[in-house]
Design a protein around this nucleic acid. Structure first.
Lengths: 176, 176
DNA sequence: TCACGTGATGTTATAATATAACAATATGTG
DNA sequence: CACATATTGTTATATTATAACATCACGTGA
């Protein structure tokens, strides 16, 4: 993949008050355009619109919510429109699907060839994307021990982010 | 069929020709009964039937396939019947849901309090359940590095099992 | 025993998620 | 421009899951 920078889209993971989300989206858009150009794919109007909607927040978005949002921006929007476009964006590595949530999320580490791995806060719904490195070693060990060759994976960790741990200190009432 | 193994459900992971699946199911049933008794829950006819159907193969089963199979054994079977029963079995830790497949699988490690983690062969569909241990350290490291407290997780690794790596040329002709 | 409360199951309806199949349109290339 | 192909529009339907309420079954205490 592109080696221009080894950094994530800048600021995309710093969701504090200083996070400049307009800039964040703009960078993501620039990146998407470049990825498509380099892959000989067209970053059409529809694809850009869906991409922008996915990036509107740093939270997973449901396909049918995208559908509604998209329908307010253009006509002739049907489920297939959204799913096809999401499929395209996923194929370009620009968007991930969260299997546990049936939802989609803009990729925060687009510079590296990777699969998404996620920390999902059960309280505030914020999702943080991890680099694969964290699990590399465990996965290698599992492959070795089990004679299994891993080709792709779904890793989604649910829990409490730092902020929500602070807010919910003490026993969590939602626990079983 | 009537020989007893002293090991919990350990035979269930040896899916070779020596795997005694009748015994495997029988053990799983015994275990399920015990879990329910100990938890003050009833292992009713319906629950037993669904449990047996989930255990019929060591492969993930779709809810609506269970529905059909169940409908051939009793009357008055509707989606809610199956989903409610699966929810119950999951709550007892007797069955896992595979998020990436929208499918369900009998738990192979019922003796330990755990969450399921899976190796899923893309060729033969066989699923192997892992113990959490394999990922413990990585998860602890992620929690530490990210200030995140993990409470539950979905870990599903897709690839090729040992047999299918060896056989590996094109799709398995015995598959549907 | 039997009425009662609760948990389990039956039943109907509908929500939420996703894909198939084909038609129409747009785009780049010769 | 004409053509081939990618993209999008359109209609229909498949798949997965839950809501809401009725009925049944089981254990408990009067």
């Amino acid at each position: 993949m592109n080696e221009r920078s080894s950094k994530s889209l800048s600021g995309s993971l710093a969701f504090g008050s200083e996070h400049n989300h307009s800039l964040c989206i703009e960078e993501a858009l620039d990146h998407a355009k470049r990825v498509c150009e380099e892959g000989g794919e067209r970053f059409t109007n529809l694809r850009r619109q869906v991409f922008e909607l996915v990036w509107a927040e740093h939270k997973p978005v449901k396909a049918y919510d995208l559908l509604s949002a998209l329908a307010s921006k253009r006509s002739g929007v049907a489920p297939a429109t959204v799913y096809r476009t999401l499929d395209f964006l996923q194929a370009q590595g620009l968007v991930h699907r969260l299997e546990s949530l049936n939802a989609y999320l803009g990729c925060s580490h687009p510079e590296t060839d990777h699969q998404g791995h996620f920390l999902i806060c059960e309280n505030c719904e914020e999702v943080r994307e991890l680099e694969l490195g964290a699990f590399m070693q465990s996965i290698a060990a599992v492959e070795d021990a089990q004679d299994f060759r891993v080709r792709r994976m779904t890793i989604e960790l649910f829990g409490l982010c730092k902020r929500c741990q602070a807010a919910n200190s003490g026993p969590d009432p939602t626990l079983p």
